[in-house]
């Protein structure tokens, strides 16, 4: 029986399920590498283009938030990324080592007085494009889920 290393890679329950956890430095280049890896899993499972678009956008926003705002680009701090993907759903957790924040403290970026301010839009886009977005109580870990889009057109020969 093979023993998996306790850190980097966890087991997958079947061929279509992939589950992994990685720790990356507070560096957006490392973030993009994980982003590509996760997007690759969606593409392998033929997720709809719109799902891939939404997940990539949400991942970008969440990783930038964790690396810049959470860890303040501190090279001594890391970001934990957990991903579980199968043919119907993807779940991603992104946790930084910052103090966290409370989502209700973020101003509404669509209010007229905030329209020209560059804040809060990342969270708004994550909420719009993902099926679920939640933060832990501390506010330093975001949980994102996206269910696979199944279009009626796919079932037809149209």
């Amino acid at each position: 029986m093979r023993t998996l290393p306790s850190s980097k890679v966890m087991s997958s329950s079947d061929d279509l399920t992939e589950e992994f956890e990685v720790l990356i430095p507070s560096d957006t280049t490392a973030g993009h590498e994980v982003q590509e890896r996760i997007i690759g899993h969606l593409q392998t499972r033929n997720y709809h283009e719109r799902d891939v678009f939404g997940v990539r956008l949400a991942l970008e926003e969440a990783l930038v938030n964790a690396i810049k705002h959470g860890n303040g680009m501190d090279p001594a701090k890391q970001v934990r990324i957990y991903c579980r993907v199968d043919s119907i759903k993807i779940r991603i957790e992104i946790e930084d080592q910052g103090p966290g924040f409370q989502i209700e403290d973020v101003p509404d970026p669509t209010a007229d007085e905030n329209l020209e301010r560059p804040c809060g839009r990342g969270i708004m886009l994550m909420r719009a494009f993902m099926s679920l977005i939640e933060y832990n109580a501390t506010g330093n870990c975001v949980i994102l889920e996206k269910g696979r889009t199944i279009e009626e057109a796919e079932a037809n020969d149209d």
Binding site: F53, R56, L57, E60, E61, V64, E116, R117, P118, R121, G122, M124, L125
Partner: peptide, 15 residues
């Protein structure tokens, strides 16, 4: 094909 909120910030400044 892709545009993040950070890019939106630049477009707002440009405007």
């Amino acid at each position: 094909e892709y545009l993040s909120s950070a890019a939106l910030g630049k477009l707002i400044t440009m405007d």
